[in-house]
Computed example of a mutant assay.
Amino acid sequence: MDFNFENELSGKIALVTGGTKGTGKAIADRLSKAGATVIVTARNKPEDQPGHIHFIAADLSRPEGTQKVVEEILAEYGHLDILINNMGSSETPGGGFTVLSDHDWEATIQTNLLAPVRLDRGFLPGMVGRGEGVIIHIASIQARLPLYDSTLPYAAAKAGLVNYSKSLSNEVSPKGVRVLTVSPGWIMTSASGRMIERIADSSGGTIEQATHSVMNALGGIPFGRPAWPEEVAELVGFLASPRAAYLTGTEYVIDGGTIPTI
């Protein structure tokens, strides 16, 4: 089969949640370069948002936010071909199980698990009706390698997302819709860079020392560095493309070798 990599997504409509910064922005740019019409969501529109990418302001942690996104996209474009459930965050306090409230758990699960579920529910009927579509859930290696002292609810929500993604694939793959999971390790986004600077400042060490301290907390990264957002975006771009037409129901880990088992 012959593919034109530059325009392989021409004519496709794609949504990337959390697509205004970090890995989400890199994914949106990658899909746009492949010819897709790209929509991104976030709570607030950044000042440097590209004009060729459709932005929708929405809080996806709330049901009305996901409903707004579904209704606006279907009203303007009629359907969605590619859904990248990238949005995710962990804002709970460190300190382990005892410091976490019901609100911490509920807010984290709303953002990292139920928001993708609601968006899938909104767009899947159309995909199934056309007999084609791609849904990619961005999870995390914390689903298998949780950091219990700092991100316990996040890790639990991502584990749920991985399981849900596999179950959903079993249901809709026979109907023409591919469902996949991408689980990155540590990614060097601007937020990660700021975290490293804070660690270096508080410890009195260098940026390099702070970087290695985070890698050590993860049990080490054999590749020797975090991933760049563009590296994760390249994997997502491939999985969303016709080149990956036979791939569904699978989790793809991109972590530089962090997870110590096969």
Rank of each mutant, 00 (worst) to 15 (best):
G51F: 14
T41V: 10
K68Y: 13
H137K: 03
V38K: 06
S89F: 15
F55S: 06
I56H: 11
P116Y: 14
E91Q: 15
P116M: 09
A155W: 06
D48A: 04
E72F: 05
G131N: 01
A28F: 10
E91L: 15
F55H: 09
P125V: 04
N86P: 03
G96Q: 08
V38Q: 05
R118G: 07
A75W: 13
D48H: 04
L80N: 02
L80S: 01
A155G: 02
W105P: 00
F55R: 05
P116E: 11
L114P: 03
G94E: 15
A75I: 03
T41K: 07
F55V: 05
K45S: 09
Q67M: 14
A115I: 03
S61T: 12
L114G: 07
N86K: 05
W105S: 00
A57T: 10
N86T: 03
D48Q: 06
L124I: 12
G35H: 10
K45I: 10
V99N: 11
G129F: 06
Q49G: 06
T41S: 12
A156C: 00
V38C: 05
V69Y: 07
T92H: 09
R121P: 08
K68A: 07
R30Q: 10
P50C: 11
G95Y: 15
D29L: 14
Y77L: 00
N86E: 08
T66D: 10
K33Q: 15
A107W: 13
S89G: 15
T37P: 01
H137N: 07
T41C: 09
G94I: 15
I82A: 02
D81W: 08
A155F: 07
I53N: 05
L119A: 14
G94T: 15
A156D: 01
K68R: 13
T98V: 09
Q110H: 14
L145H: 12
G65W: 13
Y154N: 02
G51I: 11
A155Y: 06
G126W: 11
P153V: 00
E76N: 08
S90W: 15
D81L: 04
I141P: 08
H52M: 08
G131K: 00
G88E: 09
T92W: 09
L114C: 04
E64W: 11
S140Y: 11
F55N: 03
E71L: 07
L100C: 03
A42H: 09
Y154L: 01
D81Y: 09
A57E: 14
H52E: 14
R144M: 12
Q49F: 13
L152D: 00
R30D: 10
I73G: 00
G65M: 07
I135W: 06
P125A: 01
W105N: 00
K45M: 13
H137E: 08
H79S: 07
N112L: 11
P153Y: 01
A28L: 06
A28V: 04
E64I: 06
R144I: 13
T111D: 12
I138V: 01
L31Q: 05
K33I: 14
V128G: 01
F55M: 04
S140P: 07
K33R: 15
S89A: 14
L119W: 15
A139G: 04
E106V: 03
G35C: 05
I138N: 01
G122L: 07
